[in-house]
């Protein structure tokens, strides 16, 4: 019934999931993004950073880190929510649905970062929060311009050659996704491997990367 009009990224669709007017599709490209998001969501579910120990190099000594179980519990919840939002965003077949999932990714990213009590991290989280809040304007503005100028939101219609999406809508979509996923460019890289809750910090990076790859596909195909 459905045939993807543009097949230059990831080929034709492998599987189509229909939610009324929102028709999600799995091409090779989006299915690969989906698989990545699925793997990292599973990692966030099974990882147990509460039991983290550091072994002193060159000796028998080891020491356990000070762990706050409440913090990790909340961060695990946020990381799983972030993973689910990423799963939705990378296969979404509808512009507005995509922007909703992206803004959910942004909010959960803020939640993961803001849960720390470190002053520097909280200062950074405040800045991310401002940017993510600002980014909703171009993000949903882009979707609104798409709807106003083309009369539809479905990517299946927008990908056809007959429908021309204005440049400004594409620019706004990319700007919005950049704002929602800007945290990875600024978070301290040492946090990824050394801090407690490292798998959850990793989720911030993975989700932003995958969502950005998806918006590139959408903007090029439109």
């Amino acid at each position: 019934m459905f045939n993807l009009p543009v097949t230059n990224i990831g080929g034709s669709e492998l599987f189509v999931l229909e939610f009324g007017d929102i028709v999600n599709y799995f091409s090779v490209y989006t299915a690969a993004l989906f698989a990545f998001a699925l793997i990292f969501t599973a990692l966030a579910i099974v990882s147990r950073p509460e039991k983290m120990v550091d072994i002193a190099f060159g000796g028998d000594a080891y020491y356990t880190k000070e762990i706050d179980p409440g913090l990790l519990r909340f961060q695990r919840f946020m990381a799983i929510a972030c993973g689910l939002a990423t799963l939705g965003a990378v296969v979404s077949g509808d512009v507005f649905n995509f922007t909703l999932f992206v803004s959910m990714v942004g909010i959960t990213n803020i939640g993961i970062v803001a849960a720390y009590k470190n002053k520097h991290v909280l200062n950074a989280a405040f800045q991310y929060g401002i940017v993510a809040m600002l980014a909703t304007v171009p993000l949903f503005g882009g979707a609104a311009i798409v709807l106003a100028t083309t009369g539809t939101l479905s990517l299946w219609e927008l990908y056809t050659a007959a429908v021309a999406v204005p440049l400004i809508a594409k620019i706004f979509l990319v700007l919005g996704v950049m704002g929602e996923g800007m945290a990875p460019f600024y978070i301290a890289k040492a946090e990824i491997t050394r801090a407690q809750g490292a798998p959850f910090i990793l989720m911030v990076h993975v989700s932003s990367l995958l969502v950005f790859l998806r918006v590139v596909e959408i903007v090029i195909s439109m």
């Binding site: 939610f19 929102i22 919840f77 929510a81 959910m104 909010i107 939640g111």
Partner: peptide
């Protein structure tokens, strides 16, 4: 026709309240 949107909107609100409460 756009039921998934409604589900996601509600999820965003829920996550935002969870962060604020924490």
């Amino acid at each position: 026709t756009r039921g998934l949107d409604t589900v996601v909107e509600t999820s965003i609100l829920f996550v935002a309240f969870a962060i604020a409460a924490y």
